[in-house]
Design a protein around this nucleic acid. Structure first.
Length: 310
DNA sequence: GCCCAGGTGAAGC
DNA sequence: GCTTCACATGGG
C-alpha cells in the first residue's frame, strides 16, 4: 500500500504493495491484452511492452527500454490506491461480504481511453475470450510495433483512431468482429476527426462525460459506463451487463424482475460512493464462483402469475 | 442443433 | 413510452 519503489535497473522496478490480486485484476474483463507468461503477465501499456510478476507484497515490472520514471505504470495499475479504504465503503450486506471475501485484492485499472473505448465497442454480446481474440487480430494487423526484450515475441501497440478510421469495413470484419465493425469504424473516424475529445472527458462531470460517449455509434449506457470506470475512474459509473444484472436480480431482488433504469437508481444509491468498484467485485464474483449444476440447468416452468427468474 | 456472451439501434406496438 | 428483433461469431 505504501508502494515504495526501488529501482535495481533502468528496466526493472519493484512496487511494494498489499491487497493486490494481479491475476484477478488482469482476468476480470476490464483489459484484454494481458497474457500469462513465465509465472507473470505480459502486455502492452501505451507504447511500452511490460512484464509483470506478483509475489507476496511485491510487484515487479520489467520493460524493454529505459523509462525516465514509472508514474505511467503506477497510474495504470493504480498501485497508490488505498484499497482497504475503498472496501470499507461497500455496503455491509451479505452479497458484498461474499464478493469481497472471494475477490479481495481485485483492483480497477486506469486504462487509456481510446483503447478502452474501442475494446468495449467490440465487447457487445461476446465472451471475454473472444474479445481477446478480436483485439489480438486487430493489434496484429493495425498496431505499431513496440520494442521488446531480446528473445521475446514481437508486440504491437493498440492501433490509433486514425489508423482504424482509415481502414475498410470489410478489413475490420475479417478480424472476426462481425456487425461491430461499422461501429468501431465510425467511432474511430469521429475520434480521429476530433468530434469527440477523449482527452478532455475526464475533466467533465460524470453525466457530461457519459453523454459525450453516448453520442458515438455502438456506445450505449453499458459501454459508456465501462469507459467512464475503466479509463477515467468515475465511481458513479456502474456498468450493468448480463452478469451484473444476474447479480443484482439474484442477490438484491430475488423473485422479481426489475428493469434497468430502476437498477441503475438502486445501484447509484446503494453502492455509493464507490459503486464502480463494487460493480467490479460483483461481476468478478459472479463469473468465478462455482456455479450450481454446471451445464445449463433446465429452466423450471414459470409459476402462474410469477416471473420466477433465476 | 441449442443457448449464451461485459449490447446497441431500429422497428413495431 | 414501452418491447422485440437483427446483428456476427464462437464456446460449451
Amino acid at each position: 500500500m505504501t508502494s515504495l519503489q526501488s529501482i535495481s535497473s533502468p528496466l526493472i522496478a519493484t512496487f511494494s504493495l498489499q491487497d493486490y490480486d494481479l491475476d484477478a485484476t488482469l482476468t476480470s474483463g476490464q483489459a484484454f491484452r494481458w497474457r500469462r507468461q513465465d509465472q507473470g503477465w505480459t502486455g502492452v501499456v501505451g507504447r511500452r511492452w511490460v512484464h509483470l510478476r506478483a509475489a507476496v507484497g511485491v510487484l515487479t515490472a520489467e520493460v524493454a527500454e529505459p523509462v525516465p520514471d514509472w508514474q505511467w505504470l503506477r497510474h495504470y495499475l493504480q498501485v497508490d490506491l488505498d484499497l482497504p479504504r475503498v472496501l470499507r465503503t461497500f455496503p455491509d450486506d451479505e452479497p458484498m461480504r461474499r464478493a469481497v471475501t472471494a475477490c479481495r485484492g481485485l483492483r480497477l485499472l486506469r486504462q487509456q481511453p481510446w483503447e478502452c473505448l474501442a475494446s468495449f465497442i467490440l465487447s457487445s454480446t461476446k465472451q471475454i475470450v473472444q474479445i481477446q481474440q478480436i483485439i489480438t487480430l486487430l493489434c496484429d494487423r493495425y498496431g505499431e510495433p513496440v520494442a521488446v526484450p531480446a528473445g521475446q515475441q514481437p508486440a504491437r501497440a493498440f492501433p490509433s483512431p486514425a489508423r482504424l478510421g482509415a481502414a475498410r469495413e470489410a478489413e475490420l470484419r475479417s478480424c472476426k468482429m462481425g456487425f461491430r465493425a461499422r461501429y468501431l469504424l465510425e467511432t474511430a473516424r469521429r475520434v480521429a476527426a476530433g468530434e469527440c475529445d477523449l482527452a478532455s472527458l475526464g475533466n467533465l462531470p460524470v453525466e457530461g462525460a457519459r453523454s459525450e460517449l453516448l453520442r458515438l455509434p455502438g456506445v450505449g449506457r453499458k459501454i459508456a459506463d465501462c469507459v467512464l470506470l475503466f479509463a477515467y475512474g468515475f465511481q458513479p459509473a456502474f456498468p450493468v451487463d448480463v452478469w451484473v444484472m444476474k447479480a443484482l436480480q439474484q442477490l438484491y431482488f430475488p423473485g422479481r424482475r426489475v428493469k434497468l433504469p430502476r437498477l441503475h437508481r438502486f445501484a447509484a444509491e446503494h453502492f455509493a460512493p464507490n459503486a464502480g468498484y463494487a460493480q467490479q467485485y460483483l461481476f468478478h464474483y459472479m463469473r468465478t464462483r462455482p456455479r450450481p449444476g454446471r451445464a445449463a440447468l433446465p429452466k423450471p416452468p414459470p409459476q402462474p402469475g410469477e416471473t420466477a427468474d433465476l
